[in-house]
Structure formats: C-alpha cells, structure tokens
Design a protein around this nucleic acid. Structure first.
Lengths: 107, 107
DNA sequence: TTGACATATGTCAGATTTGGCCTAGATTGT
DNA sequence: ACAATCTAGGCCAAATCTGACATATGTCAA
C-alpha cells in the first residue's frame, strides 16, 4: 500500500476522494522523499566524518554494503525507518534527527 | 532484521561486537520506541483536534481503524515510516514532525 | 436495557522491505 | 598501468509490515 496508491485511485474512478485529497497524498509523498534524502545525506556525512567505508558501516549496522549505498542514495527501496534506526545506531540523537527532518523541505 | 537481533548476537556467542556495540544497539532501540510514542501522541492529538474518529481517519489514510488504533498506541507492529507518512497526509509539516522527534527523548 | 458508535486487540494473507550476493564501474595508492 | 579498495545497482529469498477482518470492551444517549 503506497507505490500503487495513485493507480488504485485512478482505477476507482476518483470516487475515493476529492482533488484535495489527491493533492495531500501527492504532497505527502513528496515530503517523504525530501525527508529520505535529508536523512540519507546526514548518514553519508556522518559516515565520512568517521572515515569508514560503507562496508564497515554495514557490518556495524548488521546490514550490507549495498544497502548502505542505497540508504545514502535515498533509494526508494529504503524506508525512513531504516534510515532513522541506522542513524540512531551510529550515535545520532533524536534531537539531531529531528532537526534534520525539520530542515528537509528547505534542502 | 530487528526483533531477533539480540538473539542473533547471543547465538553468535558475542563475537559479533563489543559490549559497546550492544549498548549502542540497545540505546537505539530505546530511542526508536521513544520516537514512535512521540509520533503516536502527535497523531492522536491531531486527530482529536479535527474531531474525527479512528475509522474516519483510517479511510482518509487508506487504512483501517485497527491500524490507526495501533498507531496511536505506539504498537511495535507500526513502523516510524507509517507514522510519518500518516502525519504528513493529514497535514503535518516536516518541521512539525522534526520538532516532535527532536523532543522524543524528553517525553 | 438496548442500540449505535468508538476504541482496543488478535490474527493473517498479501505487500513491502531488507540483508546478502554478485557484478560493474569508479577511485585510490604504488 | 595495475592491484586494491570503494561504491552503485540488480536480484531474490527471507523477514517484516500493513490492511482488513473479527471480536471484545467501553461510552453514551434514548
């Protein structure tokens, strides 16, 4: 439930909601992307500051290099969940993460 | 990858990481819970301010009443992802969400 | 009390996400 | 140039999450 939301709406002949609702949905998805990219940048930035490779970070997170690459790239297959968890594990505080998200729209 | 992380670590006889790493992991999970609860409160608060039922909100989100209840309860089966997406859909800005998360630890 | 509505909680099939593997291209050091 | 290292991206089985449904409990007005 997410990627095909729009299709669903269309298939349903728009009776699902008003144009307003569609716009909210669109805006929300846009915002999610912005937030993901912000967190992604933060992750890369932190990793570089620690001067470690994606592989090293991956091990530390219990994940894989490819996933770290996708995280840092803001790949759609990466959830905000994974990004936030990862940041917390490498020492980010909720405060820092909050600020990062708050600034998302500006980026 | 998440709920059984500790088991994995134990099964591996602790060679996976230092005590420090285990503590980071624990702290991170604690923080995730705090963040989830904060977002959950924010969601409930917003819904109530709009004076709508969980069912109504559910329809608006394209979800179900039971899931909304779980979201507001901070149930472990709810991802930060879903909470953030939901908040964005009902009009929260990234700024507000960021502030909510930043304050998570204090709650 | 009864009925209508709101919320909580369990379950589960289907959808999404993730770790891991592999490979190609990029970057760095010598 | 060469080797070593790093990063990007595709792929997929396994793990996790989600919507929907059923049902229990709670609230409140008639």
């Amino acid at each position: 439930m997410k990627r095909d939301k729009r299709e669903k709406l269309e298939r349903a002949g728009w009776k699902v909601g008003s144009m307003q609702e569609f716009l909210d949905l669109t805006d929300a998805e846009t915002a999610v992307v912005e937030v993901r990219v912000s967190l992604a940048r933060e992750l890369r930035s932190r990793r570089r500051r620690q001067k470690i490779s994606q592989s090293t970070l991956a091990k530390r997170l219990g994940s894989s290099q490819s996933r770290v690459a996708k995280m840092e790239a803001g790949d759609p297959s990466v959830s905000l969940d994974l990004l936030i968890r990862s940041l917390l594990r490498i020492g980010s505080t909720t405060e820092e993460i909050g600020r990062t998200i708050a600034r998302a729209a500006l980026a």
